[in-house]
């Protein structure tokens, strides 16, 4: 059920990313909504299924960025593996930590994905501007991600049926915190 819901969300965000985001550029930065799906999968699944999402999101990124086949999946798998280890170790749940995690993920993916696909054209000065651009995009992505997480929380609270309870995966780690 959770996988299916994420799949629908993934499709919606993919459409938004392609058709609406190009017109919503703020200070030259734009969010990476596809990457947010991977982050949401990490926050909500909390198990190894997140690596399947890395493959899906990687494929989408490669398709619409005309990247070298495999680079997106490889990069995202590496990044999400680190994030997964980080999350399981520190039991990340607060909104602020998630914001940081999304920003770091978006920044690293932005800069590394560009470098992998356009490495020959990049000089040191280009790398500097690329880092600035990626930082802007990462910040924008994290802000949108936090906004979406908050919106989902509000929606879940408003729905009379306890969706969260039904969607909870009992086989994974338990939170140390109470909220």
């Amino acid at each position: 059920m959770k996988f299916f819901c994420l799949l629908i969300l993934c499709y919606l965000l993919m459409i938004v990313q392609i058709s609406i985001v190009p017109g919503e550029i703020v200070a030259g930065s734009r969010p990476n909504l596809i990457l947010l799906i991977l982050c949401f999968a990490l926050f909500w699944h909390r198990d190894a299924k997140v690596f399947l999402w890395a493959i899906i999101v990687g494929l989408i990124c490669e398709t619409f960025d005309s990247a070298i086949p495999g680079t997106g999946i490889l990069l995202l798998t590496c990044l999400i593996w680190m994030a997964y280890r980080f999350q399981t170790h520190f039991q990340i749940r607060s909104l602020f930590n998630r914001f940081i995690l999304m920003a770091v993920m978006a920044f690293l993916f932005g800069i590394l994905f560009q470098m992998l696909n356009q490495w020959d054209a990049k000089t040191l000065s280009d790398l500097n501007s690329l880092a600035q651009q990626s930082a802007g995009n990462a910040l924008y992505t994290a802000v949108v991600g936090v906004g979406l997480l908050t919106a989902f929380n509000i929606i879940w609270r408003l729905i009379p049926v306890n969706v969260k309870q039904n969607l909870r995966n009992k086989t994974v780690y338990e939170s140390r915190f109470t909220h």
Binding site: D47, A48, K49, F51, L52, A54, I55, G58, E62, I68, P69, G70, T71, G72, I73, L74, T77, W81, Y84, T171, V172
Partner: peptide, 23 residues
């Protein structure tokens, strides 16, 4: 078991990436 499935899925993802690159 969880750790094992994690390794398997990571390897599967990397293998997929490599396959896409190679094919």
């Amino acid at each position: 078991e969880t750790h094992s499935s994690e390794i398997k899925l990571v390897l599967f993802a990397i293998l997929t990436a490599v396959c896409l690159y190679v094919v």
